[in-house]
């Protein structure tokens, strides 16, 4: 089964893609001896890479998003639903999930 990417991974992919473009621009600017190559480096290289850096930090701060929280909550519920010694099931933590948070099978 193919696992869908959470928000953190999607943001990391976007940041990596921006870095790839920025690096390609930087590499081209280094190999071309022309006054405009410096400008190209500033506009494409520096701008994209710094933006990708900030976006990466933002992604780390925001975390994996709702999908990951649901995954964790579901896992936690499964653990707490294990039958106890007396055979009685007493869920300790029961996160309240709104319908939009319910994962598709």
């Amino acid at each position: 089964m193919k696992r869908t990417l959470n928000k953190l991974e999607r943001r990391i992919r976007k940041a990596a893609a921006m870095i790839v473009i920025g690096l390609a621009g930087t590499l081209a600017s280094l190999l071309i001896f022309h006054p405009l190559s410096f400008i190209g480096f500033i506009i494409v290289g520096i701008a994209l890479m710094l933006f990708a850096n900030v976006y990466f930090l933002y992604a780390l701060i925001r975390g994996p998003g709702k999908e990951r929280a649901i995954e964790q909550a579901a896992t936690q519920e499964v653990i707490t639903m294990q039958p106890e010694e007396g055979g009685k099931t007493e869920p300790e933590i029961k996160p309240e999930l709104t319908p939009e948070y319910v994962l598709a099978p």
Partner: peptide, 11 residues
Amino acid sequence: LGIFLMPLLIT
């Protein structure tokens, strides 16, 4: 490394 540290170094 690939998204934060090395791009800063390269810049």
